[in-house]
Design a protein around this nucleic acid. Structure first.
Lengths: 223, 223
DNA sequence: CTTCAACGACAAGAACGCGCATAGGTCATG
DNA sequence: CATGACCTATGCGCGTTCTTGTCGTTGAAG
């Protein structure tokens, strides 16, 4: 899942970025409203986080323009004041949630998870394909009841696969959501990580879940 | 479906080309405005993608000349700036859609699909002839409910057949849309691939769908 | 009806490129 | 310094794409 963070305070911004990256999100950080809007308009984010107090183009303006362009990506607003009218304005303008500073990082992570969950219809909280179960809240993965340990990147890839199970995922689609902007298209990192995942998830199992669609990409499914 | 991409940044251009080819489009890449115009004027493309910031002949000029020559091919404009007036000018000049860089490849593909769909008036999303069903979104093909696995080339050929079912398709028409411009006219690759398709689609079925029009070409239809 | 040329069907295999596996290198962390 | 995560690089196997050549079919002329 790729997240855009538009936050002018460098310290806060990089703090959020690090926290999110630890949780396997691909994060692009941007300290400028106008540039943030441009990035957001590409539509390749699964979540956008905007500080309302931005120099230049204010956060609220970014949000309204975004919605005007029919970008439906969930938006989480960060605001210094807890003034109610600020929040209301934000929600009216099309924000999906807000958070007042200072905030606990855990709460931020929880709200991020909630917003992303909303996107994938299922509200149960866990994702399941065959006997493979993934719990985004605890980042726990099991197959057949057996715990599977994944690295940050492996987890990010698997979560993306599970949220889009049964669909062909092309390499560009995968890099767009699992890696961040400075992804180098001309390497085979994706193949390598799919291979890592296969070793941990499919190796030795009767039912393979990760399938190669030659010439197109990959697909997670039960045959 | 054949696409012309006029883009001077080699990296961006080849990235787009690769992405489109993964989706079974035949892509011609061109880094020069004047040459791009020449190619576009041949009229054998289903979609044309033009960067506005070209050396020599600017993209906007290419577009206006194209429309002056009554070429109605859908045009998608690529622009570095998100400046509103650029977009407006482009649309006024006869472009069908625009995209600002940097863009998500998913969005580009979505817009390409939308433009091509508009052209063929098909809006349901899936194509169907008799009990043969093709779903462009998932690249899934079934006949009589039974899944059929196709290679990238076979799929491209079948999609072209289905989008022009009931009409005679000559070899030049087929090579123009399914292969790209460096196609060797003096081979029988087309016949060979039609044969492959027959094996997977018509072999053993009561109703044959692929018919040979001797001296002309092929045709997809129910008798 | 027979003959013949043109055209298409099909088989077999060569050439090519994709995806896989593995090894190694870099960087951050403790 | 040791470890693990992330990424790069490379060679190989195999599926895909294309070429080549032969055989079958069609339809018109003799």
């Amino acid at each position: 899942m790729r997240v855009l963070v538009v936050e002018d305070e460098t310290k806060v911004g990089s703090f959020i970025k690090r926290a999110l990256e630890e949780e396997s999100y691909a994060v692009d950080l941007c300290e400028d409203g106008a540039q943030g809007l441009d990035l957001a308009l590409t539509g390749s984010y699964d979540l956008i986080m905007i500080d309302l107090m931005l120099p230049g183009l204010p956060g609220m303006e970014v949000l309204t323009r975004l919605r005007k362009e029919k970008i439906q990506t969930p938006v989480l607003i960060l605001t210094a004041q807890s003034k109610v009218d600020q929040r209301v304005k934000g929600l009216d303008a099309g924000a999906d949630d807000y958070l007042t500073k200072p905030f606990a990082i855990d709460e931020l992570l929880a709200r991020v998870r909630a917003l992303l969950r909303r996107g994938t219809a299922e509200s149960s909280g866990t994702l399941q394909i065959d006997d493979l179960i993934l719990n985004p809240a605890t980042r726990e993965v099991t197959r057949g009841g057996q715990r599977i340990e994944l690295t940050v990147k492996e987890y990010a890839l698997l979560e993306y696969f599970m949220r889009h199970a049964g669909r062909v995922l092309t390499r560009p689609m995968i890099s767009d959501h699992v890696w961040n902007q400075d992804f180098d298209t001309f390497t085979n990192v994706i193949d390598v990580y799919v291979n890592y995942l296969r070793n941990k998830i499919d190796r030795g199992r009767a039912r393979k879940l990760i399938h190669t669609i030659r010439g197109s990409g990959y697909m997670l499914k039960v045959d």
